[in-house]
Write a protein that binds this DNA or RNA. Structure first.
Length: 705
DNA sequence: CGTTTTCGA
């Protein structure tokens, strides 16, 4: 077979010489340079695999797998032999494996068992410019390791033009090798000013291109599912009104992460002849997925980005301007197959002066509890977490928050040293709070259930939210027949749903019928299996096999399960929200925090009222900064509650865009209760107090009898 | 009457 000559081949000797002379080097290789597939082979041929393996990290699983396949093919070997890959749930390597592709998360996990990574003679950190949380931690660890394992370990960091110097400085001013890429020119067109509505502006631009420009697909970036659907609806409407025959046919396709795989596949299928495609996508199309045939890119310049607020311990999603690196990346999507065009819906001055040069790295906008625990468990000598060398230092608040989170779940002691418990927790691929809950569950004999809950909480929503169907009033949501936890809360509901699925032999059709995300359910099953194995491995000492596996099926009372979850999440919020003293909380995902019923002043009584309280933080911090606490409660009991409470101050809440309680600033110390039924209502804090009093009075009168 | 980007162990 004839293998194409790639730009990187011309640099072979320069690269090999640099690597021979230096422990680390930075390689700047633009898209199409061939670095991802060729570097490893180059080192293999140069004999570096005689003393160990070549490890190449990728930020994404699919990339690790597909690149390994490609390289195996080029070398004429089977995947899993000389060339292999290792990703979560799947290790395709053997003792023969000389070149190993793996996700950066996987390499990080290997550090736990072998901090000096002795199996490797070369480590290539690919796509380091993407600055994923895991890559950043690896960068910090490798910086230490390089000096330690000199001269037998070689490290190559591949990065983009922009931060090559920075990477080199970080690695003791190591040399930089530049390799050109292979991309067609993309003409950039700026708007004179920002459109009033970027959605309308984007739709209009797409139509203009469609009616006046030569063939070629259009890629339009939007921030989320909802926006994508709106844009598509508008586009379709406008396209309808075009004169028939005035231009070519057009298909409009959505593309976003939670879109079911078969729908995503439509974007990669063969387009009909003589028909233009308009693909409306989230930033998934920026790096993760590449759509062939795109010639025009429309870039409104925004992304939805997760942000973590250490003061409240919550993350939120915010629409923010993209960085220049992202803008360049988006434009590049137009030049993969031939020269293209990128329409930026903002002025050039905005690009130059308003956009950040690079995206704020994830390490500066995530909770670092897991990261810090990981680093602590490596027991690196002479290390002070607050002083660890990161390429970009996270804020002190972020680090202190991580330490306090870890202290609360007993993972570290007062002096900041990792505890035995903390060590066990570090081995579980979970956020520390959930890891703590699992260990508590083991002691409370409800591990089986806790595993399920932890697994379901580790995946994206298991519910499939179908796009709105036309103008039908009722939203097509099919999971009405699923167990609802009987008011026992989301966790119990997850447990019941998973158990029901298991009873149906993990049938995928069953998932479909009940409106569940097949992908998420499968993922939960894999996670559950993996977590179970890790929990067992730790317990193994001295215990017979059979007993072990039965502990995975152990089922305790709902109360035991709650207690276990509380052990992980308990106090976390109470700790931060002194207004809520007396309320204990357990967390649900990262945005919702439930107050445990047993600690709620309006406890469940014989009438079955008040099964749970939920604090909905995102609402508090992002939309309505004047509201300090919002309690969101399940619909099932709201009505009886409303009936019971008279003289209530109920205010309607109609969506995020309109303010609740307009123009009225609330006192800081007033907790708000938001009741969630079909419609949402806000109750004032005095009602909570009144209800609490009544509850206590009733309890008192019962006690007197 | 409202719903969430994207990766990863």
């Amino acid at each position: 077979m004839g293998l194409a000559v790639l730009p990187i081949h011309a640099y072979t000797s320069e690269i090999l010489e640099t690597v021979a002379k230096n422990a680390v080097c930075v390689l700047i290789g633009e898209t199409g340079s061939g670095k991802t597939t060729q570097l490893s082979q180059m080192f293999h041929q140069a004999g570096y695999t005689k003393s160990g393996r070549i490890g190449v990290t990728q930020p994404r699983r699919v990339a690790a797998v597909s690149v390994a396949r490609r390289v195996a093919f080029e070398m004429g070997v089977q995947v899993g032999e000389d060339v292999g890959y290792s990703i979560r749930f799947e290790d395709r390597t053997s003792s023969k494996t000389a070149i190993k592709y793996l996700t950066d998360g996987c390499l990080l996990r290997e550090c736990l068992f072998d901090p000096e990574l002795h199996q490797y003679s070369v480590i290539i950190l690919d796509e380091a410019h993407e600055r994923s949380l895991n890559t950043d931690i690896l960068l910090g660890l490798l910086r230490r390791l390089v000096s330690k394992r000199k001269p037998e370990l070689k490290v190559v960091i591949t990065s983009a033009t922009l931060d090559g110097e920075k990477m080199s400085d970080f690695f003791f001013k190591c040399p930089i090798v530049r390799v050109p890429g292979k991309l067609y020119p993309v003409q950039i067109l700026y708007s004179k000013e920002r459109p009033v509505s970027y959605l309308d502006g984007a739709v209009q631009t797409a139509l203009d291109i469609h009616v006046s420009e030569p063939p070629g697909d259009i890629l339009l970036f939007m921030t989320g599912q909802d926006e994508i659907e709106k844009a598509i609806a508008k586009l379709e409407e406008e396209v309808q009104s075009l004169d028939e025959g005035s231009c070519m046919d057009v298909v409009i396709l959505p593309l976003y992460g939670s879109l079911p795989p078969e729908m995503q596949a439509r974007v990669f299928g063969q387009p009909p002849d003589n028909c233009r495609r308009i693909i409306v996508a989230t930033n998934i199309a920026e790096t993760s997925l590449t759509v062939d045939g795109v010639v025009y890119v429309i870039d409104p310049g925004l992304v939805k980005q997760r942000q973590y607020n250490p003061a409240s311990g919550m993350d939120s999603l915010a629409v923010v301007p993209i960085s220049r690196v992202q803008a360049i990346q988006r434009a590049g999507r137009a030049g993969r197959t031939r020269p293209g065009r990128c329409y930026r819906l903002y002025p050039e001055a905005a690009y130059e002066h308003e956009l950040l040069a690079a995206t704020v790295p994830e390490i500066q906008r995530s909770s670092l509890a897991g990261t810090v625990l990981h680093l602590k468990s490596l027991e690196l000598p002479d290390i002070d977490i607050l002083d660890f060398d990161f390429l970009d230092q996270p804020s002190l608040e972020l680090l202190e928050d991580a330490l306090s989170q870890l202290y609360i779940v007993d993972a570290i002691d007062k002096s900041g040293s990792i505890t035995a418990l903390g060590k066990r927790m570090a081995e579980l691929p979970l956020e520390p709070a959930l890891a703590r809950a699992l260990i508590a569950a083991e002691e409370l004999d409800c591990l089986g259930q806790a595993l399920t809950v932890a697994a379901v909480l580790s995946c994206e929503s298991i519910f499939y939210n179908a796009p709105r169907q036309g103008k039908e009033k009722k939203r097509a949501r099919e999971h009405g027949s699923l167990p609802n936890g009987r008011g026992l809360g989301d966790h119990i509901q997850y447990l019941q749903i998973y158990d029901a699925w298991e009873k149906n032999n993990f049938d995928l059709e069953w998932c479909k019928e009940n409106g569940l995300q097949i992908r998420a359910m499968k993922f939960a099953r894999d996670v559950r299996r993996q977590l179970g194995q890790i929990m067992l491995r730790k317990k193994r000492d001295g215990e017979p096999e059979k007993r072990e596996s039965s502990s995975l099926r152990k089922v305790g009372s709902a109360r035991a399960l709650r207690q276990a979850l509380c052990k992980g999440f308990g106090n976390r919020l109470a700790h931060r929200l002194p207004h809520h003293n007396g309320y204990r909380c357990i967390g649900h995902k990262s945005q919702l925090v439930q107050i445990h019923p047993s600690a709620c002043p309006l406890e469940v009584d014989e009438e079955g009222l008040l099964p749970e309280w939920v604090l909905y933080h995102e609402l508090i911090s992002t939309t309505h900064p004047f509201i300090r606490h919002v309690c969101m409660v399940e619909g099932s009991w709201v009505e009886p509650l409303l009936k019971k409470m008279d003289n209530m101050d109920i205010r309607g809440l109609s969506g995020r865009k309109t303010p609740i309680v307009p123009e009225k600033r609330l006192e800081d110390d007033k907790a708000m209760v938001m009741a969630r039924t079909g419609s949402q209502q806000v109750l004032s804090s005095t009602l909570v107090d009144a209800a609490r009093e009544r509850f206590l009075a009733r309890k008192q009168s019962k006690a007197n009898k």
